[in-house]
Design a binder for these strands. Structure first.
Length: 639
RNA sequence: GCUGCUGUAGCUCAGUCGGUAGAGCACUUCCUUGGUAAGGAAGAGGUCUCGAGUUCAAAUCUCGACAGCAGCUCCA
């Protein structure tokens, strides 16, 4: 039974929560401001609201995503009210709910710093305690423009709003233009915390004014908020920059090489294993490997367009009056190789792969650990094919990408299909064909994707595969792009069955995107505990005392013979300490050897995150490891 | 590149009111010969990012540069 308190104070009962929705709609918007204060299936749910927006009346609870979104958006309004009080004269641009919380872009007369957040938070708590109702007010476009004539952000928003009626929501002394919906009153907002202050451009446009963006998070209960904050703390420990340094994988020395990684031996192992795996996937799928020069002359980059279009992002140099650029892309190298031979339709498709080291002078604020660097390695490939072959070739690339992410245990956040942008080259007919080929390939393979209209490259549409890092940032990884531009610019052709010259289509594909970025995301995904085949240190053999050091070295030698990465820890310290250090170094297996093991020719095995595996013969141990490595099995689940 | 914050030992961080530096881990040496996450002792280690300024005196206050972090923008 559900009881609804109507605005006039009378109560109305309904049989179930499900039916409330329909009844609410039939009663109309007047009900929208009512609070559902009754019982749902016999349980008191005081965080259940009926809400109204421009488009619908709906029922949400704080347990739903929709309810949380409502709370978060409402919290943004409350924060705005608090800021307006603490910093009079502040103008408010835009304050949506986002994953886990909300933000508000504001233009305040004085800068807001992180230290001010406490002040704002305190004021927010006061507002929430007062429990002011969120009231919906509607103005005509003309009234709205007159009321906010002094506020350039509001005017801008009013201008881009649809319809002639503009809705505003107010609570306390604060009003903001908003489609709604909101929780019924400020007191319904759960536990919140202001997180950080950052800059953000108006309309996301770097040529426009920069506003102050204040981020906050909101959850239904204090406990859930604490849990969320704890999750963030835990996620920070997975940061690949910290783990990279701890595990001796990679590190950064910005003074000497800003935005470029220095790789230590453990990192090189990881890098090479991954590279070899990607190479083998390419080989299995008919790709041949090429290598092209690191530095090529200006004329080449003018033909490709990179000299002009990325003037400030290229590393260039001049020798004896000639100008050069360090390659920012690998495609021109591949095109030169294509052009130096004559290919017929019998030769197509040509599938050419290259682990290409490229350099791009990214802006200082854009660099981020391994995931955004100035020097990186693309597992690049270029497919030259006929328009008829295009879709099958795209499918082949998609399949490789899925295979690699499955093997490495990473899950896509989303897949994007980006179509023709405003500024583009190539005939509409070609674009249509290419977009249809990409979409057809995705659809045929039954893959869900997000359409991103107008976000393709200027030379062709593309499919991007996106992943998230430890703290939820999304990164573009694999990509499949169709290109009409470069075949044209380099004037490459193939000979068709009628002996006519035809223009091939070019596909650019990268599976990992870049080895660096892939390793960065992989490191965070596994918090350094990689699948065994990738783990830099697979086994560490620990001698209980000096007397067994020789045996420990023998075991290491036997393991190495089986292609297993093993090291002996023969230092003079307690076994407990050796175990601790082995665990901290994330050696996947610890093999402990003492008098018992020497006698029996065995090892006492301990697996990271799993625990004691008991005693086994060195041969059995080596065999089991070799099999797991060969199978590229994912690591066992923790605990 | 933009906005904000930060910069102390190899690492993680203390350092009050301005009076020229401290801890833990790591490192070196010695002792210790031990069974599943830290044995003990001693020692060494710093131009407090850099450059100016204020001051009798600056790690500390001010300005600038550089770098890092968060977000924004960008990512062929």
């Amino acid at each position: 039974m559900v009881t609804i308190t109507l605005p006039d104070g009378s109560k109305k009962e309904f049989e179930s929560a499900l039916s409330v929705m329909d009844i609410a709609k039939s009663i109309g918007s007047g009900l929208a401001k009512a609070t559902l204060a009754g019982m749902v299936n016999g349980t008191l749910v005081d965080t259940t609201y009926i809400v109204e927006s421009d488009s619908e009346v709906s029922i949400v609870t704080a347990k739903d995503e929709a309810g949380l979104k409502l709370m978060r958006h409402s919290a943004a309004h409350v924060m705005a009210e608090a800021i307006a009080k603490v910093y009079p004269g502040t103008k408010f641009a835009y304050g949506p709910a986002i994953a886990d919380g909300f933000y508000y872009d504001v233009d305040s007369p004085e800068p807001i710093s992180v230290d001010d957040l406490k002040k704002i938070e305190k004021e927010m708590k006061r507002i929430v305690k007062q429990n002011g109702k969120f009231e919906r007010n509607e103005l005509t476009r003309a009234e709205a423009e007159a009321k906010y004539a002094e506020d350039e952000y509001k005017l801008d928003n009013i201008k881009s709003a649809q319809g002639d009626v503009i809705s505003f929501y107010s609570q306390g002394n604060f009003e903001d233009m908003c489609l709604g919906p909101h929780v019924p009153s400020a007191g319904k907002i759960g536990s919140f915390k202001l997180m950080s202050v950052a800059g953000a451009y108006w309309h996301g446009d770097a040529t426009k004014q920069q506003l102050t963006r204040i981020y906050g998070t909101t959850f239904a209960t204090k406990e859930e908020l604490a849990e969320h904050l704890n999750r963030i703390e835990e996620a920070k420990k997975r940061d690949h920059r910290a783990i990279g340094k701890q595990m001796g994988l990679f590190e950064f020395h910005p003074k000497e090489a800003q935005g470029m990684a220095f790789w230590r031996s453990n990192g090189v192992i990881l890098y090479r294993e991954l590279e070899n795996y990607l190479r083998s996937v390419g080989e299995e799928n008919g790709f041949e490997e090429f290598m092209t020069p690191q530095i090529m002359n200006r004329e080449l980059w003018e033909i490709s367009g990179h000299w002009q279009n990325y003037a400030d992002k290229n590393y260039t140099c001049e020798k004896d009056g000639k100008e050069y650029a360090v390659k920012p892309m690998n495609c021109p190298g591949a095109l030169i190789l294509y052009k130096s031979e004559l290919y017929s339709h019998h030769d197509l498709p040509l599938r050419w792969a290259e682990f290409g080291h490229v350099h791009r002078y990214e802006g200082s604020g854009e660099i981020h650990g391994l995931v955004r660097v100035r020097g990186f390695t693309q597992d690049d490939a270029h497919v030259f094919c006929t328009p008829e072959q295009l879709q099958d070739e795209i499918k082949g690339c998609i399949k490789q990408i899925f295979e690699v992410y499955k093997t490495t245990g990473l899950e896509f956040d989303h897949i994007e299909l980006s179509t023709k942008p405003e500024k583009s080259i190539g005939a509409q007919e070609l674009w249509d064909k290419a977009e249809a080929a990409l979409e057809g390939a995705l659809t045929d393979l039954g893959i869900d994707f997000v359409l991103n209209p107008g976000d393709g490259a200027f030379y062709g549409p593309k499919i991007d595969f996106h992943l998230r890092d430890a703290i939820g940032r999304s990164w573009q990884m694999g990509t499949i792009q169709v290109d009409f531009s470069l075949p044209e610019r380099f004037d490459i052709t193939y000979v068709d069955a009628e002996s006519n010259k035809q223009r091939p289509v070019m596909i650019h594909r990268a599976i990992s995107g870049s080895l660096e970025r892939f390793i960065g995301v992989l490191t965070e995904h596994y918090a350094g505990d990689f699948p065994l085949w990738l783990a830099p240190e697979q086994v560490r053999v620990l001698s209980v005392v000096d007397a067994y050091n020789d045996y420990a070295c023998e075991v290491v030698a036997k393991l190495k013979k089986k292609g297993i990465r093993a090291k002996a820890d023969t230092r003079n310290c307690k076994i407990g300490a050796k175990i601790r250090e082995g665990e901290l170094a994330k050696a996947q297996f610890l093999a402990i050897v003492g008098s018992n093991e020497v006698e029996a020719g065995s090892v006492s095995v301990r697996r990271r995150k799993v625990g004691d595996q008991g005693v086994m013969s060195v041969e059995d141990f080596a065999q089991a490891l070799a099999e797991e490595i060969k199978s590229k099995a994912l690591p066992p689940k923790a605990e």
